[in-house]
Simulated scan of single mutants.
Amino acid sequence: MSNTELAILGGGIIGLLFGMVGQRSGFCLMRGLEHAWVQNDGRKLRAFATAMAVALLLTQVLNAVTDLDLTGALYLQPTMSWLLVPVGGVMFGLGMVLANGCGARALVLLGQGNLRSLVVLLVLGLTAYMTLSGVLAPLRLWLEGLTTIRLPARSLPLWFSQVGVSVSIATAVMTLLLAGGLVLWAFQSRTFRQAKTELASGVIIGVLVAAGWWVTGVLAADIFTPVRLASLTFVAPIGDSVQYLMISTGMNANFGISVVGGMIAGSLFMALITGTFQWESYSSPQHMRRSVSGAVLMGCGGVLALGCSIGQGLTGFSTLALTSFVAIGAIVFGAWLGLKGPLRSYVRS
């Protein structure tokens, strides 16, 4: 098999497993925040924290002991727009509340028969491409040019190494502190420790993030026909998938597209074998309005923030990129605005 075929195959397997786990567990940052803030049930949020810890630890181990070179990752950029990244994160966070889940969750829900998610995915993909290279791209590029600043370092370890500590030691210390802190916080809850489905989902999805880096950065690495270094993220890949369905004879499949297809297939498989497949649609025009509004915010905001709740919250975080910490905080703040903040009345209307 060629290296591009290996990347596509690996992406499909990773997506299949993610879809199965996501369908079974309901893994989603938005659901985790909603359950914690509204229902006083932190199990799903602790599952996301566990996934963050596992993804970070395994990714940094791979970076240390294999040929994986994370310096080519999208998240590790020397510059950042001080305006677009946080604004995009807030837009995405609010959008996933309005749409009742992020792009990854929409793929899982589509696999189990939720037709609302089909609308969300189509609008999200269209809006993402409008922002990346369509009618909104000139405005995005203009604002980016006005607001881009040089970061003190690409990543947290590189920043701390400026005080005289070696990069390898700084990376090890930051990885252990952050991963250890997340695990301690997650496992201090007895209800979470007893919630085997949530606990397992966090571990498995964290492993899948590291597996994505390994597939594109080690297994499919080839200097003659390079594969873009990537792992799990869903805004641009959903847009790529919509485009691929329309012009597949003039466009090559890639890792992200195969992850998207694998997730739908995995969710469908799990829904069928567990008897949970069920057709669902909108209950009212207002319901559809909220859903479409959320998809627009996620598509545009995810591009501006350089990733989604999975792309920045797990994959970007696993690289310890400074930009990812800004984006994660903005996404959580956007979700707070819709779940508990001043916009919650609009979300529920």
Rank of each mutant, 00 (worst) to 15 (best):
L146Q: 14
I264D: 10
V183L: 15
I238P: 08
R228N: 04
R228G: 08
V173I: 15
I223E: 13
G262F: 04
A210V: 10
T225E: 12
L208D: 12
M174Y: 07
T233V: 06
R228H: 07
V235Y: 02
T233R: 00
V218M: 13
W159Q: 05
V165W: 14
V203G: 01
L141A: 14
A195G: 03
L232G: 04
A200L: 08
A153Q: 08
T233S: 12
G261M: 12
R140W: 08
F234Y: 06
T175L: 10
A253D: 11
L176T: 15
G145M: 14
S166D: 15
R154L: 01
E144C: 08
V163W: 10
L219V: 14
P152C: 09
F234A: 00
I204Y: 04
V215P: 03
M246F: 12
I223K: 05
V235H: 01
V227E: 07
T233Q: 05
W213S: 11
V260H: 05
Q243K: 12
T175I: 11
G239R: 04
G164L: 01
D222W: 06
D240T: 08
Q243W: 09
P157H: 11
L146K: 13
L272K: 12
I238L: 09
V260K: 03
T175C: 10
M270Q: 15
S258P: 05
S189N: 12
F192N: 02
A170L: 13
V235M: 00
V215L: 03
I257M: 10
V259G: 03
E144H: 12
G206H: 02
A186V: 07
E198I: 00
R193Y: 00
T147G: 07
L182M: 14
L141C: 02
G250R: 09
V259N: 01
R190L: 01
D222A: 06
S231F: 02
P152T: 08
F224V: 15
W185T: 12
F269W: 15
G181R: 06
L176R: 09
A265K: 05
A200F: 01
V165N: 05
W142T: 15
P157L: 14
P237Y: 05
A211K: 01
S201I: 03
L158S: 14
Y244L: 02
V227M: 01
V165Y: 13
L141F: 09
A153I: 04
F224Q: 13
